[in-house]
Design a protein around this nucleic acid. Structure first.
Length: 443
RNA sequence: GUCCCCUUCGUCUAUCGGUUAGGACGCCAGAUUUUCAUUCUGGAAAGAGGAGUUCGAUUCUCCUAGGGGAUACCA
């Protein structure tokens, strides 16, 4: 049997690191297993789901390099949900409830005030036909709850090991809203059954859902998939990640110049006992991946670590891999090799392009020294060897050495106190610009 | 409030009762005879707190503290 994983985001916003991590983990697990991954859009929440987000999610996954074997939308599947609803109702596992939101809220608060767990009291189970008739006459429509077996639910979790949840400690979940629309739980289970999902890998926030989903699987007479719950990521300070005003969306990262492979390299290993290392292609990420290496504790996601990894990745990236993404007229492999070691993101390329081609403002501290240096510039073509020859000549002529020799030249030639190695930069800047800059002329 | 999970260098983590508590990233220092980057070498750096079990606890148990999650007619 081939394993089938799924990534099931709600199209209610852009993908953020947390989502992307789960997508990646599912994809990697599928790859490692010789299985496939289905993309399922959980768009049962009509108010918040939009096509724009659905498209954006696919775009972001493509950017990461993740592919899915098929895509399904829950909004297309209402017939299947209706059928499951009937099945569960016939089995006596669904019961109608007529409480309003306010009433439920009140009950909840009362239980809380008495230091009791705020679970539903199952009052609707005691409704007489006359009560129901009265509610209906009032115009109230029922919402439907799933009657949980009050027993201990167990499963062997891929990352948490044996998990035990007491069914009696949970509220009977509402499966169908009073407007007739299904809530998250039933569609999720029905789709997992119909799409023959074998592995459900999701965030730790779903563990109690899993307990209840297992009962729904059973009530529907279906096989129960293997579950794995990955601890959620926290921010660098250990606080919740999602609450930091969307600054972690993939789109923003992409705009900030983050490489997909840098993100993937980090997300695939963060929280595991494997060392985070730069991976240049997805195969390298697949090869070292092992879901059982994930810790049960929440890991911190630090954007600074991502930027660091991004820089390291770029330093090792060859020209042919980035060529088509650099739109600067005249930029070539020599230029790339000269500057890549100083890049943090690809956006920085422009900075060094300007340093080489101008316009830039030379920093002149000692015009006399620079004029003397200009006189020593070797004749003929400027090559990577020219720098050494030139600075040696300048040293003999002026007596300057070390920092006093090199720094004024760097400042005049690049306008900056740091940057790529000068021997590589010099040929790129070219004789004409070199002389102009030494002369203090902005180009 | 209630329930569940978690807590080892700054960070991600290894250790399945006896270790100089290991690695990676980061950091610091030195070298590669300017800076940045790279590479190499070296270094600093950790068991939340308190009880208990034991000849011996980072490891097992309990308590406390801190963190995360759940507790919706969201997903």
């Amino acid at each position: 049997m081939t394993s089938i994983f799924r990534f099931a985001p709600s199209p209610t916003g852009y993908l953020h690191v947390g989502n992307a991590r789960l997508a990646l983990i599912n994809w990697l697990s599928a790859k490692n297993d010789g299985g496939k991954m289905i993309l399922r859009l959980d768009d049962t929440d009509l108010e918040r789901s939009t096509d724009r987000y659905a498209d954006a999610i696919q775009e972001d996954l493509h950017w990461l390099g993740l592919a899915w074997s098929e895509i399904r939308k829950q909004s297309d599947r209402s017939a299947a949900y209706t059928k499951a609803f009937e099945t569960l109702k016939d089995a006596g596992r669904l019961y109608p409830c007529y409480e309003t939101g306010e009433e439920l809220d009140y009950k909840r608060k009362r239980r809380l005030a008495r230091k009791l767990p705020p679970i539903y009291d199952r009052a609707a189970l005691d409704l007489t036909p006359a009560d129901v008739a009265a509610f209906e006459a009032e115009g109230r429509k029922p919402h439907w709850r799933f009657k949980l077996e009050q027993e201990v639910i167990r499963w062997d979790d891929l990352v948490r090991g044996p998990v035990v949840v007491d069914g009696a400690s949970m509220s009977d979940p509402v499966l169908i809203r009073s407007d007739g629309r299904p809530l998250y739980h039933m569609p999720s289970v029905v789709d997992d059954i119909d799409f023959r999902i074998t592995h459900v890998i999701r965030g730790e926030d779903h563990v109690s859902n899993t307990a209840l989903h297992i009962q729904i699987f059973e009530a529907l007479g279906a096989a129960i998939p293997t579950f794995g719950h990955i601890p959620l990521l926290t921010g660098p300070d250990g606080g919740p990640l999602s609450k930091r005003e969307g600054s972690q969306s993939l789109r923003e990262m992409r705009e900030a110049g983050i490489e997909a492979m840098a993100l993937v390299s980090l997300l695939a290993r963060l929280g595991t006992s494997d060392n985070v290392a730069v991976c240049h292609d997805l195969q390298a990420v697949i090869d070292g991946f092992d879901i059982s290496q994930f810790s049960r504790a929440a890991a911190k996601f630090d954007p600074a670590e991502l930027v660091n990894l991004n820089a390291k990745l770029l330093h090792e990236t060859s020209w042919d891999k980035v060529q088509e993404r650099i739109s600067l007229e005249g930029a070539d492999e020599n230029f790339w090799n000269a500057i890549r070691g100083n890049l943090s993101t690809l956006n920085d390329v422009e900075i060094w392009w300007r340093v080489v081609k101008g316009p830039m403002t030379p920093v002149i501290e000692d015009a006399t020294f620079l004029r003397a240096a200009a006189d020593e510039l070797p004749a003929g073509e400027i090559t990577p060897e020219s720098w050494k020859i030139w600075t040696t000549a300048v040293k003999e002529k002026t007596g300057a050495k070390g920092r006093a020799l090199f720094m004024p030249l760097r400042l005049a030639l690049t306008g900056q106190p740091h940057g790529p190695e000068m021997n590589n930069l010099l040929p790129l800047i070219g004789r004409e610009n070199i002389l102009a800059r030494l002369n203090g002329t902005a180009d």
